[in-house]
Design a protein around this nucleic acid. Sequence first.
DNA 1: GCATATCGTCTGCGTGCGCTTACGATTTGG
DNA 2: CCAAATCGTAAGCGCACGCAGACGATATGC
Lengths: 149, 149
Amino acid sequence: MSKLWGMPDRPDLAAMAIPLTRALMAAETPILREHGLSMWAYGVLLGLDERPVRTQAALAESIGADKTRIIRVLDDLQRRGLIERSPDPADRRVRLLSITPEGRRLRDAAQAGIRRMEERLLSRLPDDDREAFVRVLRILSALPSQEFR
Amino acid sequence: MSKLWGMPDRPDLAAMAIPLTRALMAAETPILREHGLSMWAYGVLLGLDERPVRTQAALAESIGADKTRIIRVLDDLQRRGLIERSPDPADRRVRLLSITPEGRRLRDAAQAGIRRMEERLLSRLPDDDREAFVRVLRILSALPSQEFR
DNA sequence: GCATATCGTCTGCGTGCGCTTACGATTTGG
DNA sequence: CCAAATCGTAAGCGCACGCAGACGATATGC
């Protein structure tokens, strides 16, 4: 860990994370397109299972989207029978969101394609390193934003 | 590494990398702003030392920018005396780019602030894990895009 | 009962960005 | 010598997105 004349020992995290994220997204896009999904649509399908949400706004927040902007996405997913929206009897303002079996199948198929791409990518790494990387990425990505200061 | 009923053992890499990258960028922005730098300006200053470049287009490519969009950034950095552009005697179309001592100082100061933020973030991790994470991130971020398929 | 808040929805505004075109100047290669 | 390519530059177009405001319907709290 030596520093040579002001040269940092490693690039900034963001300087590495940005191109990686760009490349991952670029790789995902055609895979998702094969399944007729945009990245936001896929994000919605992911968000509907991993974390049960009872308002659209909460879903939007959990997937990092703008609640107003995902309306169109939700409309389309609903039209295609991939999600359902039903009124919440406990609060008539709210529409409960759920994924249909068909939605689950499509999401899982897309995810399998993405997983294959990822495994090819990670296969160049030693097992320890890839496990540590995933572990740390998971921890850091789940941190609340006030931890980044 | 067990899979329970179609539930993946981990989220997609992008699903983790995207929020992390967003958070890192959001954290960097005020640090850079304190030094009067936008993210692209900072990217230019970083790109001018780590990889000598002889055309503006090559610099833009190396930092993931659009060559037409960074003209304004370069203009501003030059106006502030942070970079220099000089004609290349070997090719009169080209303007050679270099960072000034002042530019280097500003970049290093900004980078020190970012490094402090990052160390605070990474300090919650075991040493092995953080080293492995940085090592892998470095490797993956440097891969050419055709490796993501 | 009523002021305030929240839900989903629609729309507007401003900004940034990818990509393209066009241009003048210069270089390259046949 | 000349066609094609490349450089930096300026600007246009379309799109995505963050954010905000407005609205009708509904819920909450005093």
